[in-house]
Design a protein around this nucleic acid. Structure first.
Lengths: 356, 356
DNA sequence: GGTAGGATAGAAAACGATTACCGCTTCCGT
DNA sequence: ACGGAAGCGGTAATCGTTTTCTATCCTACC
């Protein structure tokens, strides 16, 4: 591969001049010289070495997005948004998927630091591992001091999101909508209690209940993993308990979809016997059966704004923290509460009463 | 940020020795010296500069995965597989989403070259843009000559996949399964004819027909985009035609899901009146309604093997090209063909006969 | 006792690009 | 006609590592 030295030699100029032609925008170079350099560069198929450039600038045009799981459509959308904004600006987007493993996340951040990434965008709240978080924070501090931009898209241990979503208000609006439909006993699949987002949505649930003057019953709140399995498990737990309920609100869509699948297996009609609501509006939420009532999040927009915020930090401009509003997407998995209690004979779990 | 120079000074050794302690594995350094260097590194929170290292080696431990669309679960799974294998090996995974835009793909490859990425893995077949492909190939050749590993996970303009999936056999097995169920007139939603995978699946369809002694009728083959909209469109086109059919095989799952959705709108029962089959087994295929009969692809495994192949190239080991087998996942969208023809009065499209 | 050779450690030259600094023309104003 | 500025180009230092190539010290063997 040709280096700038060879380009300069072929063009009969110094490396400084060659460099100024191929990169530095505002230094004066005569048209004739510029043309000769450009010709030489083309002839040699010259591509500048980003490593050498980065070494000098202590910065490489890479923005990293830290996600929990790249196969989760939620994160895919956010990454897409970041990419939409970062690509035209000449940045390469790296997706780092921690698989919800604090150690892996730590090693990613370390690698990013070692690579002098221009920016790190956290798409998800941090994991609850104080030791790992401390090391991550150490690396981030070092990077920030070198001019790198760190942006949080979720609340985390050390503060609120830079560009965030109003999870609390979003969930509260969904609960309010269920109350409006006539529901009084609303169960809540809360996800893991270690996740900040999950906690915020739980707070929204409680706040809406309070606002509606309904009692909070902790037996109706189930903590599981944040995926479809968790949803199925949550349904089983609720049905195995002895508290009546007419609706299940879920802290995210995968939970709701898992719940839907399990309820279908058990032959429980949704929304006839039970209403189910999700949160996130992942792309497939619209094509489940029944289609899922959920809360739409401006994910792509969040990714875009996240990069915009990073760019602002990089340019030394003032920040513009933002809280993006959610939007209700009521579809067919919710309806009025069942008039009469139903009984379920489910998959070897014995019978469980459902409904008020 | 501390450099190795400072570490060396604090430890009272030369930078050469310090470097040998923190990276080079096999050079002899006395225990006492080693300990002093390690202590100094820890005290200064030293993290080696990957850029400087990469500049010297003309290689940075980054493997890039080029995909068409990161929000497509197919690609997400592949990326996940690559990540599973690359992370433990100390490589960072970059996901580059071309959005099916040849120019964007070109600029990604250029950036990757300029960054001296160790490896580029193409998760999808290339786009049909000769000019762009030529430039991409130029960059790839330059990278290969510098020791970078280029791996194709799909057939492409210049050859077969390095680690691939037997698309032809996979589709043939699905068609055979439909024939087994009693179907004789099987329509095919083929996706875009410009995509290599799509073409391979079409070939599988034809081969299976031939093998079963069934005639090939090109009016039953519909080319559309490779997504849900394409599926809906394909159904409309088929129903608008005058050729009878009892099953629709689709070149991928999004097509099948689009078909399912459209058929539901039209009130056509699946699989009662019409069988529908997909290809890919994306995660949501199991939770559509009816759940989708499809062909399972070992995507994550493909990602893992893709990286393994890259690692082999990087180490100068001999290649091990592989064709991974698919697996049938028959669920509830397929069944025996309808006994009597049905008639559809669909969404302002007039009536169309369906079935034999 | 001389020397071969292994074990350690250091000096210095790369890698490829950017840029501060300096110097040469040319040209303008006075 | 001369000082100075502007335009243009070159020299060389620099970023942080790795990696020869030496240099030193010891041990051990003949």
């Amino acid at each position: 591969m040709a280096s700038i030295t060879e380009v300069a030699r072929l063009a009969g100029v110094s490396t400084a001049t060659a460099s100024r032609v191929v990169s530095s925008a505002d230094y004066p170079v005569s048209e004739a010289t510029r043309a000769r350099v450009l010709d030489a560069a083309r002839a040699l198929d010259y591509v500048p070495n980003a490593l050498a450039r980065g070494l000098l600038k202590s910065q490489i045009p890479v923005v990293a997005v830290i996600v929990h799981d790249i196969t989760d459509p939620y994160f895919a959308e956010v990454v897409r948004g970041v990419e939409d904004a970062a690509s035209p600006a000449g940045y390469l987007v790296i997706t780092c998927s921690s698989e919800r493993d604090a150690e892996r996340e730590t090693s990613y951040v370390r690698l990013l630091r070692s690579m002098r990434a221009a920016s790190v965008i956290f798409a998800a709240s941090g994991l609850d591992d104080p030791e790992a978080n401390q090391e991550i924070e150490k690396h981030l501090a070092a990077m920030r001091s070198e001019g790198a931009a760190v942006v949080h898209l979720s609340p985390h241990a050390l503060g609120p999101a830079d560009v965030g979503i109003d999870n609390e208000a979003g969930m509260a609006s969904m609960i309010a909508a269920l109350v409006e439909l006539g529901h009084r006993e609303i169960a809540f699949l809360a996800g893991p209690s270690t996740l900040f987002v999950a906690r915020a949505r739980l707070v929204g649930y409680r706040r809406a209940l309070e606002l509606a003057g309904l009692p909070f019953d902790e037996r109706l709140v189930i903590h599981t993993s944040f995926d479809r399995e968790g949803g199925a498990l949550g349904v089983d737990t609720l049905l195995g308990g002895d508290v009546a309920f007419t609706a299940v609100a879920c802290a995210n869509d995968p939970l709701a979809m898992g719940a839907l699948a399990r309820l279908a297996e058990l032959g429980i009609d949704v929304p006839g016997q039970l209403s189910v609501a999700g949160f996130d509006d992942v792309p497939v939420a619209a094509i489940t059966s029944p289609s899922l009532s959920t809360v739409r999040l401006p994910l792509r927009e969040m990714g875009r704004r996240g990069f915009a915020e990073a760019a602002r930090i990089l340019n030394g401009e003032p920040l513009e923290q933002a809280v993006l509003p959610t939007e209700l997407a009521m579809r067919s998995s919710t309806g009025a509460p069942a008039a009469v209690p139903v009984t379920v004979a489910g998959a070897g779990r014995g019978e469980a009463g459902v409904g008020a």
